[in-house]
Design a protein around this nucleic acid. Sequence first.
DNA 1: TATGAATGAGCGTTCATTCAT
DNA 2: TATGAATGAACGCTCATTCAT
Lengths: 192, 192, 192, 192
Amino acid sequence: MNTVQGDKSEAILDAAYGIFGSKGFYETKMSDIADEAGIAKGTIYLYFKSKEQLFVAVSKRDCNSFISRLEYALQAHENTGDKLGAIAKTHLTYYYERRNHTKLFFMAPNNDPDLMKFMKAFMNEYMSMVCKVLESAGVPEPVLLAEAYIGILDRLKMDIMLNPEFNEQDLNKRIAFAAALFLDGCRSFLRV
Amino acid sequence: MNTVQGDKSEAILDAAYGIFGSKGFYETKMSDIADEAGIAKGTIYLYFKSKEQLFVAVSKRDCNSFISRLEYALQAHENTGDKLGAIAKTHLTYYYERRNHTKLFFMAPNNDPDLMKFMKAFMNEYMSMVCKVLESAGVPEPVLLAEAYIGILDRLKMDIMLNPEFNEQDLNKRIAFAAALFLDGCRSFLRV
Amino acid sequence: MNTVQGDKSEAILDAAYGIFGSKGFYETKMSDIADEAGIAKGTIYLYFKSKEQLFVAVSKRDCNSFISRLEYALQAHENTGDKLGAIAKTHLTYYYERRNHTKLFFMAPNNDPDLMKFMKAFMNEYMSMVCKVLESAGVPEPVLLAEAYIGILDRLKMDIMLNPEFNEQDLNKRIAFAAALFLDGCRSFLRV
Amino acid sequence: MNTVQGDKSEAILDAAYGIFGSKGFYETKMSDIADEAGIAKGTIYLYFKSKEQLFVAVSKRDCNSFISRLEYALQAHENTGDKLGAIAKTHLTYYYERRNHTKLFFMAPNNDPDLMKFMKAFMNEYMSMVCKVLESAGVPEPVLLAEAYIGILDRLKMDIMLNPEFNEQDLNKRIAFAAALFLDGCRSFLRV
DNA sequence: TATGAATGAGCGTTCATTCAT
DNA sequence: TATGAATGAACGCTCATTCAT
């Protein structure tokens, strides 16, 4: 009576998330995941069709949680600057929380069309959320600007992932920095 | 009339570049590379110790050529704005030329310390070149700004790599855009 | 009605014993062993970590069974002469039974420290059993004498292994001969 | 004018002797031998048809030198006891000199019929030399006795090969011991 | 003779997936 | 549902041998 449906599926996803994230897709063995989840190897296949599908499921769950968070964060703000700050905060905090799971984002399997499709859809959704913020500010070229902003954030996240001493103070500094740079450009730094 | 030394090594690197680039490290078989290079499997091992080492060699050759190009491009300009434009042009053109070799940059082997070390060194070098440009403009926080600029470029390159219809006009538009945004921020787009 | 645990492990050992014994370590392929055992190649690795470890396991099982036999045979006799006869009988009979598995004893892998260690331990145990018999007879230099006796037996076994027509009568003759020679030396043959 | 014919062949045999002897047939690479001999890999094949044939040649040269030595040693003695002592001395000294080349005697290739034939012929020759000594003493069963004597010597040689601290004094002790035991049996040790 | 770059058959091992229980 | 023993295709790498120079 205790077991909610999906309980085990969730346990598998958790385990897979941890190991894919730290070792990457190709260096992860299904048996590692089963061990971590405390179940038998064969059981994984009752819930996920293949290693690729499991990876896709892990990615989906993670991306969806990111989108939800972002939606929630954007709701809470009114003006464009605050919304951009919220995006930076959500993006960078997200990776800060995942700084020990780097490999999840670098080592995806190559040829899975499902994954490719999903990742594109995710990127589109994220992009369109940023776009909407920029559009409502009446900016021209909102798509390119959205890409650029996400690019800034994505590169700043690298510090987070590669530097083991990165701390919350560094995080907050980058959040403020990203929004400021994006709004006023690097020349504005000179004028200050 | 004799074969130049390195001829075959170069042929292997070319073949490996092509296949690693289109299929990624893990999905590439040494025999594929040998076939592509028109030699026997064993021959590769006369020139490269292992699959990992071959991948490292491919990456090194490629990164070094990028650095050389960038050095050359920066020499040709005097003021900061032009130099930033040159960086954008080099970066985006580089990936534009490699738009069919996406996987080279995403699917590296996980645990090779040689590769990790080299990639860090490469990133440092690129970063310090961009930093120098910004420093000479007297900007505060040149490191974060360099990261941000590279981030913008890196994200803009994604369009290049994922969109098969991307053309040279798109390329030039992004080059101009990246420098302008970076210098004056997105608010400046509104005023225009 | 269930398969006893170890059943398959035993089947693999049997197959390996046969093929290692007739072809030697290096000329034996894991796939040969799998075929002989009627299982898939991969299955062997569920029970033995590597080809080397499998060889070690085969050797251990075989040596241990020799020691057991010898212990049993020595218990059954009281005086020194009878015990020496029992040793000769056990030793030569043992090889007589294995006369089609010569290679097991000649073609071990070179560098396996596990195997080296075990073989030394086996030889020590065998030696000390023979030594004990000689010591209880009050003989000086029991170690050298034990070595010599084992040496006689080991050389006599060569006939067994190399001569396909060797029969049980030949066997018994050598058993009697070995003990007699060892006890009284070759000069005693003249006096008879 | 300096190069005697066979000079290089001899150099290859020397190199092969050293490496086969310390690493065994299967763990020895032709390139190791070429390096050791200071020549190119391909050159070996001008003198020896294959790795197997090279091994056979090494073995032959070595066995023949043993036979020559033994012939010379036997000539120098008259009575049976002295001749047996000479055999023991030649046999054990031979291995004492080769105590760093153990593998030569244990790790021969399996399936080479040439080698098998030659080793049998060698053993026969050694055997018949020992037999002749015993026959001239009027002993019955000279074949079995010869085998036994060689067996004693062969086992005593094991100490030499496996014990790195074995010295010349140990060697001489074993030479005397082997002949005494063989002549008068272990009971004679009690009476002394 | 001598070289050594090139070959390619061959093998040990891994691991995603299946299926009888 | 859950298990985990069994499978077997797949692949990186080695090394004896060849042959153009």
